[in-house]
Nucleic acid binder design. Structure first.
Length: 266
DNA sequence: GCCAACGTTGGC
DNA sequence: GCCAACGTTGGC
């Protein structure tokens, strides 16, 4: 596909130690280093999206798992996907003992810092927009199309993915918001109400991990294959898991295998 | 192959 | 720190 796609990648601006190392990577850190490998992504869908990135494509730098989540800067792809060497570095927080250099499983791209968002675009604003039935006057400059595009962003629809696609209209709207601001007077505190209470007690699972970008655990994978569409549905692999067939995680599985959809209970 | 339990993400 | 959301595990 031709270059020109837009992306959103998450990073954690607050310190968090994983295996003895701080995985913090804020916009300040990013600006200081200028270009950084996006290591540590251990999620198939996110990985597959990175494999689609082409040099020069634009990306939003998002602050995640912190006090004030939101879009802090603009970046661009500086190097296409290549094996994530941290996967076989035993001292690294994202070491994956099951991967071999000969058969890279995880990939990363290099991203270069482009500029800061003049006005940090808080997730709360995007959430408010996604829940609004009409375009708020304070930000009417994004237009109806921008308003609609923002309402369908993965960021508000499926928050967990650490690497997401951003369509052009949403990109333009975010750029305008970051440039013009205007929502200072808006109340971004609306309660979103909890959803239904969970049914059963769960033990604690506190924890949280999060890494520079996401790191989920591994499982098998299916690898890309086609290339593009596989990204959103779960490309994850079906049943076999790390345990079961850990050894062959090669990659030959299919592309998108729809298989998870109903899992109402928890 | 289904699906409940589990573990993690990540906002609040 | 709490806990909703959701991908993954793994028994059956």
């Amino acid at each position: 596909m031709a270059p020109g796609k837009y992306w959103l990648l998450k990073a954690e601006p607050d310190s968090r130690v994983v295996k003895g190392k701080d995985v913090k990577f804020s916009v300040d850190d990013f600006e200081a280093v200028k270009t950084s490998p996006w290591e540590g992504v251990r999620n198939y869908e996110a990985r597959n999206l990175m494999k689609e990135m082409q040099v020069g494509e634009k990306a939003l730098f998002y602050h995640s798992n912190c006090k004030s989540p939101g879009i802090a800067a603009f970046a661009e792809v500086a190097k296409e996907a290549y094996p994530d060497y941290t996967a076989w570095d035993a001292s690294h927080p994202y070491y994956d003992p099951k991967t071999k250099k000969e058969v890279p499983k995880w990939f990363m791209v290099d991203l270069s810092f482009v500029s800061r968002a003049t006005h940090f675009v808080p997730l709360a604003l995007l959430r408010l927009i996604s829940e609004s039935t009409s375009l708020p006057s304070e930000i009417e400059y994004i237009g109806e199309s921008g308003f609609k595009a923002l309402q369908t962003m993965d960021l508000v629809k499926k928050g967990r993915l650490s690497v997401q696609r951003v369509d052009e209209k949403a990109w333009n709207a975010i750029v305008a918001l970051a440039e013009k601001g205007g929502w200072e007077e808006m109340d971004l505190k609306f309660k979103k109400g909890k959803k239904a209470p969970k049914a059963g007690p769960k033990e604690k699972a506190t924890g949280r991990g999060a890494r520079k970008t996401a790191k989920e655990e591994q499982s098998e994978e299916s690898d890309d294959l086609g290339g593009e569409d596989a990204s959103d549905m779960e490309v994850a692999k079906p049943q076999q898991g790390k345990k079961r067939k850990a050894k062959d995680d090669g990659d030959r599985e299919y592309s998108a295998a729809p298989r998870r959809s109903n899992r109402p209970k928890r």
